[in-house]
Amino acid sequence: MPTQTEISPVTGHYVTIEVEGARYRVFYLENGTGQPLVCQHTAGCHNHQWMGLLEDPEFTRDYRIIAYDLARHGKSDPPMNTEWWKEEYRLTADHYVAFIVAFCDALGLEEPIFMGSSFGGNVALQLALRHPDRFRAVIPVEAADHSPGFFLDWWQHPHANAAQVCASGVWDLMAPQSPEHDRWRTWFYYSQGSEAFRGDLYFYSVDHDLRGRCGEIDTSRCPVVMLTGAYDYLTPPEAGRRTAEQIPGAEFIEMTEIGHFPMSENYPRFAGYLRQALDLVARRTGMAEASAPRPRSPGAQVRRR
């Protein structure tokens, strides 16, 4: 990690894309060279969640890591050419998938690996189902075929401080073992995104429903490696495992002593599991640099069907 006097190698850019007739100026951070690895933040959050990975030379040596802000999050504004303030924001699977594909097209990314957490993990499953030839592989983190129960009015209740409710409502999704400073940083990110959070969760808990459809995902075209933290109360390990068991050829890794925001609540611990996941992807896709011994691996159990 850089010291206070160093300039981070991570750079920020804006790209304008068109999705379903609406234009968006999308902000993204990137660092590294090689195989593109596109990273989606969690609902109501932004791409700073991925700063640990973006600044980790162990990964940037071989991967071009790109972490964008979904529209209405972080530095990506709402649509530029629609009166978005005249309708309630509810993210749909169709729009979300189209947005990600348009973003990857705009950057000219060929066969990127897509990784997302929470509602980003759920859309990773959608991408594998709908666009198996557009992505080299997907890594759904904290994902499930179905994740009901979080599309709540509390996130935008006018009588409560929405920033506080969102940030503290997701606090319990993190593991008590995760470093306090990193949990509070994640909390801080969540105090910034309350206006989008509820609408994001429409996708997460309502529109995303792959029950009975996971078997249609073709992992010979798009390998799937799922990662789930033991302290995730929304999609606990049993939900991730249940989902992976329905996808022929999918892998599932349970991450111990970590929760729903692994990349930001405890990046060093997450990095070991991510290395395992990327090595599995490399083996499955014939990428050259697969599977050298990785000392940081915390020794997760890998289950493969």
Partner: peptide, 14 residues
């Protein structure tokens, strides 16, 4: 250090 799902009121409620 509580075990998973005993680490907060949201977790234990869900």
């Amino acid at each position: 250090v509580p075990a998973p799902m005993f680490h907060g009121i949201w977790a234990a409620t869900f």
